[in-house]
Design a binder for these strands. Structure first.
Length: 445
RNA sequence: CGGGGCGUAGCGCAGUUUGGCAGCGCGCCUGCUUUGGGAGCAGGAGGUCCCGGGUUCAAAUCCCGGCGCCCCGACCA
């Protein structure tokens, strides 16, 4: 782009490509849904400032919505984490599907939707005064080999919800941070953080895997899930000693997290962080992804610049947008089928019309009309799949349903007696009769 | 790389638990009938039961070893 665009006057610019892509996927699955080779359409926008980048982003976003609408694929744009690609605001276009690999949380009231990896919840309970919790000071309890919530729960006879889960992480600044959350919930590690790996545990011997706890931890940041701030009971936690836990740990008395936020993976029934109504989870397929990259890449590149209005050299504000074309085919089939087979949306159907000659081998007139209809429809600009096989009508009907071509024209003795043929819509199942004249003029209605 | 499952006719599978004639559906071949919703009847062909070894009078079935495929997870612009 640096060779093509020199001035702010040339902006905005959006370029695209449709290319084969290769990924070293650890486990390809579900046919076209995730393969090591696939076709991808992606595009990139370049703007002079953030406000204009957002406009370009919105144009691409709206275009994607229109594409999916025309394809007959219902999609929900959801807030997502940007993964390795970087940048700030981004959306995944999720097609609800039982075969999907992703889940998103959606609010039943305000419509807020976010990938399960990004979704947060609200906890609508008053913060509890620690002094109101009647519990003696924390004390040790031996928990040999009980390094999991389940094991501690079974050993001590307490519910998972009464145990505090402590997850050791490296945060986005590289600092060791412990996330504490209710033991009956999965931890959601914020974007940019990572959980401890083998090397981290080796480097921080004060943190005993399976027995980590937030009490008396020096020089380690502790953050807590919202639910802990409103918990009206003491917790069981790790004692930071092998085979030992602490009981009667009260949040705010025995330790105080630096801050409270949503650190659990959202579950169905959790409250929307925006409006407080219940959220539900939807299984889905990621059909497309859009990103506001901002200066994420261009600020690190020497030549990704243009000359701005005031004469200074400025980096481009970028957006990037991708649709998995190969995957789209699978999503398309998922979204557009019934028990008889595919139902191609007209805009992407490989043929407009399938022409069935019924009993042509025994009726010369049928064969003649079908041949003529084939030519007429083609001359009128239709793409036609012509079934002139010598098989029974039932076989042709079933195959036509299976292939899912939008329009089916049936030429047979029954109709020809009245100089008619039938036209059937695969999507609606509606059959109408048209005259031979209409058909031979290349028209379907 | 972990966890689970599977391997028997062209395809899909049952049979393996409790060792005892190699089965079913579809497809295929022949004949007759049928022909606007995946035809019917009759007859027929088709097997390295993944491979190797072991136990046994006898192994698709039990034991040991190997190979292959699928699913789940890790992974994933």
């Amino acid at each position: 782009m640096s060779g093509e665009v020199e001035s702010y006057r040339q902006l905005p610019v959006t370029v695209y490509q449709i290319q084969s892509k290769f990924r070293d996927e650890a486990r390809p699955r579900s046919g076209l849904m995730r393969g090591r080779e696939f076709t991808m359409s992606d595009s990139y926008s370049f703007d002079a400032n953030k406000e204009l980048m957002v406009l370009s982003y919105q144009r691409a976003f709206d275009a994607y919505l229109r594409i999916f609408e025309r394809l007959g694929i219902p999609v929900t744009p959801v807030e997502a984490v940007s993964g390795a690609i970087g940048g700030d605001v981004n959306h995944e276009f999720m097609a609800p599907s039982l075969v999907g690999e992703d889940h998103y949380a959606s609010c039943s009231n305000c419509g807020l939707a976010a990938n399960i990896e990004a979704a947060t919840r609200r906890v609508d309970v008053e913060r509890v005064d620690p002094s109101s919790i009647d519990a003696p000071a924390p004390s040790d309890v031996a928990t040999p080999d009980a390094g999991t919530i389940e094991a501690v729960s079974a050993l001590l006879g307490v519910s998972a919800a009464q145990i505090m889960k402590s997850i050791a992480c490296i945060d986005d600044t590289g600092a060791v941070t412990i996330i504490v959350l209710p033991g009956d919930r999965e931890a959601r590690v914020p974007h940019g953080w990572r959980m401890f790996d083998e090397a981290d545990f080796a480097a921080h011997s004060e943190l005993k895997r399976g027995f980590i706890g937030p009490v008396d931890l020096d020089n380690v940041r502790v953050v807590g899930d919202l639910a802990l701030a409103s918990a009206a009971h003491p917790y069981v936690t790790g004692a930071n000693r092998v085979d030992t836990h602490l009981i009667n740990v009260v949040v705010g008395r025995d330790f105080t997290p630096e801050s409270f936020a949503s650190y659990v993976v959202v579950e169905s029934g959790d409250l929307c962080s925006n409006c407080g109504h219940e959220m539900f989870l939807q299984r889905s397929v990621e059909a497309a992804h859009t990103f506001q990259l901002g200066l994420h890449y261009t600020s690190k590149m020497k030549n990704a610049t243009f000359v701005s209005e005031d004469g200074s050299e400025q980096p481009f504000w970028m957006g990037c947008y991708g649709i998995g074309v190969t995957r789209l085919l699978a999503v398309l089939a998922e979204a557009n089928h019934d028990e008889l087979g595919l139902i191609w949306p007209e805009v992407v159907a490989p043929y407009d019309v399938t022409l069935l000659a019924l009993g042509a081998a025994r009726n010369e007139k049928v064969a003649e009309v079908a041949e003529a209809a084939y030519e007429a429809l083609r001359n009128a600009g239709h793409s036609v799949l012509y079934d002139d096989r010598d098989v029974s009508p039932g076989v042709k009907f079933a195959d036509a349903d299976l292939l899912g071509v939008p329009w089916r024209v049936m030429v047979g003795t029954k109709g020809l007696e009245r100089s008619c043929v039938e036209v059937r819509s695969r999507a609606s199942g509606q059959t109408t009769e048209i005259s031979l004249e209409t058909l031979l003029a290349g028209q379907l209605s």
